[in-house]
Design a protein around this nucleic acid. Sequence first.
DNA 1: GTAAACTGTGAACCATGGTCCATAGTCAAG
DNA 2: CTTGACTATGGACCATGGTTCACAGTTTAC
Lengths: 116, 116
Amino acid sequence: MLIGEFAQAVGASKDTVRFYTRMGLLQAGERSAGQRHYATYAEDQAERFVFIEQCKALGFTLREIGDALTERDAGSLTALRQQELLEQKLRTIEERIASLRSAEGKLRAKLERTTR
Amino acid sequence: MLIGEFAQAVGASKDTVRFYTRMGLLQAGERSAGQRHYATYAEDQAERFVFIEQCKALGFTLREIGDALTERDAGSLTALRQQELLEQKLRTIEERIASLRSAEGKLRAKLERTTR
DNA sequence: GTAAACTGTGAACCATGGTCCATAGTCAAG
DNA sequence: CTTGACTATGGACCATGGTTCACAGTTTAC
């Protein structure tokens, strides 16, 4: 599958697919033609793409997803390790929520003073 | 007051002061010496700096703070207008919290499935 | 007179997640 | 043979909030 077909299949732009590939998130094969090399994407890369999107929805950065995929490819992404990563991320999300809630509280206090 | 003294007075780096000045958040005077021009900061700029920090703590971006300061300087930052800006910001903060909570919920669900 | 401490300028750089652009090779249909 | 559709490459660009750097003029102390 060339990039256009793959991008359409997963519902992303070709630029995004190229970007993910450069980041090492997706693995592309190569097909030569004259002086040019065209990237090809196998079926399993679509599953990989879905995995990436799910991780993104969980709040992971592309960098973190790349690291996790590398571990997965190496076979070292055990259930325990997965749990660890999820718990770490949960903590950082909770921190961010707490910091936003603090801003929210200050805003409400300020609003009350302003409205009063 | 030259930049070094001012920066120390407000507890920021000289680079930050220059950055804010370029952004239009702080207003500097000018003192010439030979071919060079040195920025000077009056007392009221320290209050301005405190205002900026408070706004940042409320979740406003530097751009938004700059706009608000411009309105304040023009005398058009009425209590009603302030309330409006605070309410707008409160809404965006709430949206961000909601989106983080969604990620949090998904993470917890995933953790439960993984741990089980 | 010279060295230290201060100042200015413009630009590049950091992370984040892409998008957009120009230039140019490849391939199939007409 | 030409046109259109596809592809690759490298780099610039967006927002955000600064930081760091090199190069160079100024001022103060000794």
